[in-house]
Amino acid sequence: MVDGYASIPGVDGRVASQLRKGVLEYCVLALLRDGPRYGVELLAELARVEVMATSQGTIYPLLSRLRRTGLTDTHLRESENGPPRRYYTLTDAGQSALEEFTANWPSFRAAVDHFLTPGETT
C-alpha cells in the first residue's frame, strides 16, 4: 500500500534525473541567496519549475548533506501556524560554492551546446 506512492510521472526520466543530480544542490543554494527559507517552502519553490520537480522527500538527504558539509546552517523559528519551522541559511562556504558554480556554469552550458548543435563540431 505504502509502496503505491509513485514517482512524479513524466519528469522522472533517466536523463532528467541524471542531469538534476549534478545541479540540484546549486539550485537549492541559489534559492537561499536572498534569505533563509524553511524546508517545505524550499521544496515548493523547486517544484514550481518542472525539470527540477522530483519526489520532495528525495531532497531531504541532500539538505542533510548541505547542513553536514557546512554549506548551509539551520535554525528553528516559531510560527503562528503549527510547529516551528527549520530555516536554512547560506553560510560563507555555501556562498562561495554558489559563486564558483555560477562562474563555471555559462562555459559549461556553452560547451554542451557546442556538442549538441549540428554543424558546430565540424
Binding site: 509502496d3 506512492y5 524546508g39 521544496l43 517544484a47 519526489s55 520532495q56 522527500g57 510560527s79 501556524n81
Partner: peptide, 30 residues
C-alpha cells in the same frame, strides 16, 4: 516536513494527509 505541510494545509482530513505523502514520494525512492 509532514507536520509543517499539514499545518499549512487548508484541510486536515485523510485526503490532505495522502496528498502530502504523495508529494514526498515513494519510501523506497527516498
Amino acid at each position: 516536513h509532514i507536520e509543517v505541510a499539514l499545518a499549512e494545509s487548508d484541510t486536515l482530513d485523510d485526503n490532505s494527509v495522502r496528498r502530502v505523502l504523495e508529494q514526498l514520494g515513494a519510501p523506497g525512492e527516498i
